[in-house]
Design a protein around this nucleic acid. Structure first.
Lengths: 163, 163
DNA sequence: CCTGCAAATGTTATAATGTTTCAAACTTTG
DNA sequence: CAAAGTTTGAAACATTATAACATTTGCAGG
């Protein structure tokens, strides 16, 4: 068992998914939000994937399992999941990934490997503070922060370079 | 005349545009890059606009002035301008804005007003440093940083709230 | 000059992503 | 049950971006 469940380390991903779904159910119950079968299935598909999924990827997966959905079905489910902070949208990829700090509506920092596609979500208070300070300096009132860093994850870095 | 040419303050925007174009020409000359008429015109349209322009906005403008262009024409011009750091792509808007620190290939912090659409590009070393530190902590090698902050600019903040 | 190459543009079609609209089904509540 | 609100289905459409291939332009060398 890894010390921390970084996606870069091998881990029991099924357990991750189960945990995320259980958390989601708890959060929705607590907020009187309806985690309907479609919504839950979309969340599960996103969590099962090791990379962010596009809306049309999800659509295709639903199709193969017999659920013949149209785009709005998926986008509505995604809107719901976004609203309750259960997934994040990665603007630079037009794709969605499970939120690893689910519960409240927030925005984290995303480290996106351009090689393997894995995404690591971080909560970096220093960055948030620096952004807020910079905004305050020009009297700008921040509401939503999109912070996505593309690069190489440790594993892929080790493979191509060699340190 | 404003102390600093923040887009929030009134200023002679034509002069801004001229300056940006002159800079662009200098940069391209220096790098043996060809700032062709189309490319220059696209850059000018982007600079003339006070908000980020979508590729199809640019397309429409070119059409009205008789140049009957197709999407690839615009996207190719944009790719060129991006490559030489003359414009930035705002991922959260699918739109493009003039780079105010043109010259080298870089990524800044963008403060985007959700009310008036104006964008202010900042260079915030504190943020860069914090991002790099966070990435280093998990051995991630950052290459491209997308940092876009949506919110309210001082002017729009003053109008709706009142302080 | 002209020839040939590379870069840039034109043109058509198509792919990928996201939304509008309205109808039908389901849920909750009085 | 009936009414109201929410969720889903379904069709069409809007927006953003790219692929593929033809044509033109700029320019170096013969």
């Amino acid at each position: 068992m890894p010390e921390r469940a970084l996606p870069y380390r091998p881990h029991n991903h099924e357990a991750c998914v189960s945990q995320a779904l259980a958390d989601a159910r708890a959060i929705c119950r607590q907020q009187n939000a309806r985690l309907t079968p479609i919504r839950e299935r979309v969340l599960e598909l996103i969590w099962q994937s090791h990379k962010p999924l596009g809306a049309y990827d999800i659509l295709a997966m639903l199709s193969t399992e017999g659920h013949n959905a149209a785009p709005p079905t998926v986008y509505r489910a995604l809107d719901f999941l976004l609203q309750y902070g259960l997934v994040h949208r990665i603007a630079s990829l037009n794709a969605f990934t499970g939120c690893t700090h689910a519960g409240e509506h927030h925005r984290g920092t995303f480290l996106i490997c351009r090689q393997c596609g894995n995404v690591l979500e971080l909560d970096v208070p220093d960055v948030s503070r620096a952004v807020e300070a910079a905004a305050a300096e020009v009297a700008f009132q921040p509401e939503e922060v999109t912070l996505e860093v593309a690069g190489l994850c440790p594993r892929c870095r080790g493979e191509s370079g060699h340190a």
